[in-house]
């Protein structure tokens, strides 16, 4: 079945279009994870350490938002960024920035919810020590985040997995424009609709390989770090 080799051949021959797609996929999903981490980690830590009315409700909501349907997020971001929408003036629709925004919305609850759980568990362990050291609230948060860093890597990976695998949101806000907003997942959707199933499967395997590679890299870094820091 020579057709089945198409995607592999594309990889081996260093097809520039394929590499541009891979690069854009990584750029969009990694940017979304970084932005979501900048929002989600402090937010999760804050919820973990603060007692306020309605906190239980917020936690339930946050956990539920981990399952936000990408299509709904895509539609909401689309309506927001559309020229007729509230942020239309920025002209972000059908750009990589729009895809990053949509994936940030998807990934932030995942990172925030997992951070909240991790930090709360660690806080139970550290509370006495940090209180005895007379550490202020900011110092506490910083210490807990830093000491939970290896567990938080797992939260980031969960976020990255979600972003890299998702097609529903980015195909709506990105438009799947060739050479501009076409990512691995939207390319797979396109090849499937063109009936080129072998190429779609091949691209799918490439995507899975990339996700595995990113996870392996993070795992190695985590192991090395844990040996040093416990």
């Amino acid at each position: 079945m020579p057709q089945d080799l198409t995607a592999l051949q594309l990889v081996l021959s260093g097809d520039p279009a394929l590499f541009a797609i891979v690069r854009l996929s990584l750029y969009v999903s990694l940017s979304a994870v970084v932005l979501a981490a900048l929002i989600g980690i402090p937010l999760g830590a804050w919820i973990a350490l603060t007692r306020f009315p309605g906190r239980q409700g917020v936690i339930v909501m946050l956990n539920a938002l981990m399952g936000l349907p990408p299509v709904v997020v895509g539609l909401a971001v689309y309506l927001t960024l559309s020229r007729s929408g509230p942020l239309g003036a920025f002209g972000l629709l059908f750009t990589p920035s729009a895809m990053i925004i949509a994936q940030t919305v998807l990934v932030t609850p995942i990172i925030a919810a997992l951070t909240r759980q991790t930090i709360e568990d660690l806080w139970i362990e550290y509370r006495d020590e940090l209180t005895a050291m007379n550490l202020g609230p900011l110092g506490r948060v910083a210490t807990l985040i830093w000491d939970a860093r290896f567990s938080l890597v797992t939260a980031l990976l969960a976020g990255f997995g979600r972003a890299a695998a998702e097609v529903g949101a980015i195909i709506i806000v990105g438009g799947n424009i060739e050479g501009f907003t076409r990512t691995m997942t939207t390319a797979i959707a396109l090849e499937t609709s063109k009936g080129d199933l072998p190429l779609a499967v091949g691209l799918g395997l490439v995507l899975i390989a990339i996700v595995i590679a990113v996870n392996a890299l993070a795992w190695t870094a985590r192991r090395a770090g844990e040996r040093l820091a416990g």
């Binding site: 750029y27 990694l30 940017s31 970084v34 932005l35 900048l38 972000l92 750009t95 990589p96 920035s97 990053i100 501009f180």
Partner: peptide, 15 residues
């Protein structure tokens, strides 16, 4: 962080 933020902003403008 600076690099990622910068590239994010830059990408929007460049396109």
């Amino acid at each position: 962080l600076i690099a990622v933020t910068a590239s994010f902003v830059f990408a929007g403008h460049a396109f």
